[in-house]
């Protein structure tokens, strides 16, 4: 009797997990399938759940009707540069906040936490004026600067958590051997922290890659547009052409989905270790 219950329980568990799998994968599957259908098949009823003919014309089209390769390049460049700057800034701040206790440290952490809760849109008017005065409007530098700013608090908190797990005896030993603190950090701690640092970098990259509203605010010319801004103009300008739109969506999500798939274990670890202190 009891054994039968156990088997039923296992089967039930498998069914629920399978249903959830379909629930999660189907939307992206549908986007990919749509993008691979010839244009007339997209709007033909009955809907084809598997395309009769696989075609790449939607992908060709998106590069023809827009400067898609430029947007891709801009997004890649801005996301990488901003993520790299974030790492340099927050490795220092995260390390100091993990290793030293000093007056104002907890207030600073609180100030970082609070930035995560206020809708930043409230400062957009001022930021717009600041960018304009600094001559950064329509320049990629505006986004590199603001993406860095936006990520500093969270990445500081995340890296601080990783640093706290590494015994400070490690760099102390190096310092006794004559290393300065900075070179101990660079030569001893950072190599040990590589999984955490990669997770932080990927997290930062993904956030930058996905950011939309600041990019809409600060960038209004073809040569500096990022992918989300381009997607935004596709949906606001005219009736949506779902063939090209699905191809553009697939191209925008593929990099982050692949990055996530490769490193999800580290990212999950990085995101949870702050919240869960068991």
């Amino acid at each position: 009797m009891k054994k039968q219950w156990k088997i039923a329980g296992k089967a039930g568990k498998a069914v629920v997990l399978a249903l959830y799998f379909i629930f999660m994968v189907f939307p992206l599957y549908w986007m990919v399938i749509t993008s691979l259908k010839p244009r007339n098949e997209i709007f033909a009823l009955p809907l084809q759940y598997w395309p009769k003919h696989i075609s790449f014309e939607n992908y060709v089209q998106i590069f023809k009707i827009s400067k898609f390769q430029i947007y891709l390049g801009n997004s890649l460049f801005i996301s990488l540069v901003a993520a790299a700057i974030v790492l340099v800034v927050t490795i220092l701040s995260g390390y100091v906040l993990a290793r030293f206790s000093f007056r104002g440290a907890s207030q600073l952490m609180l100030a970082f936490f609070i930035t995560q809760m206020i809708p930043l849109f409230i400062g957009f008017s001022t930021l717009y004026m600041m960018m304009s005065r600094m001559g950064l409007l329509n320049k990629q530098a505006s986004l590199i600067l603001m993406y860095t700013v936006g990520l500093v608090p969270f990445c500081t908190i995340m890296l601080r958590g990783f640093f706290q797990r590494i015994p400070s005896s490690l760099e102390e030993a190096a310092m006794i051997d004559g290393c300065s603190r900075l070179s101990a950090l660079w030569r001893v701690i950072i190599p040990v922290m590589m999984p955490g640092i990669s997770a932080t970098f990927i997290f930062a990259f993904v956030q930058n890659w996905n950011e939309l509203f600041m990019a809409i605010m600060f960038i209004d010319n073809e040569t500096s547009k990022t992918l989300p801004v381009a997607m935004n103009s596709f949906i606001t300008k005219f009736d949506i052409d779902w063939g090209s739109m699905s191809a553009a969506t697939v191209l925008s999500v593929i990099p982050t989905v692949i990055l996530f798939a490769i490193c999800q274990r580290f990212i999950v670890e990085g995101l949870t270790q702050g919240a869960v202190k068991g």
């Binding site: 997990l17 959830y20 799998f21 999660m24 994968v25 939307p27 992206l28 549908w30 986007m31 749509t34 993904v206 890659w209 996905n210 950011e211 939309l212 989300p228 997607m231 935004n232 949906i235 949506i240 779902w242 739109m245 699905s246 969506t249 925008s252 999500v253 982050t256 989905v257 990055l259 996530f260 798939a261 999800q264 274990r265 990212i267 999950v268």
Partner: peptide
């Protein structure tokens, strides 16, 4: 591990793109 990669990936998408995907669905 693989299962997690398939079901947790929504985290890596932007809300804006998810909006577009569901606009289509």
């Amino acid at each position: 591990g693989i299962y997690q990669g398939f079901v947790f990936y929504s985290w890596a998408l932007s809300g804006f793109l998810i909006g577009i995907i569901f606009r289509w669905l």
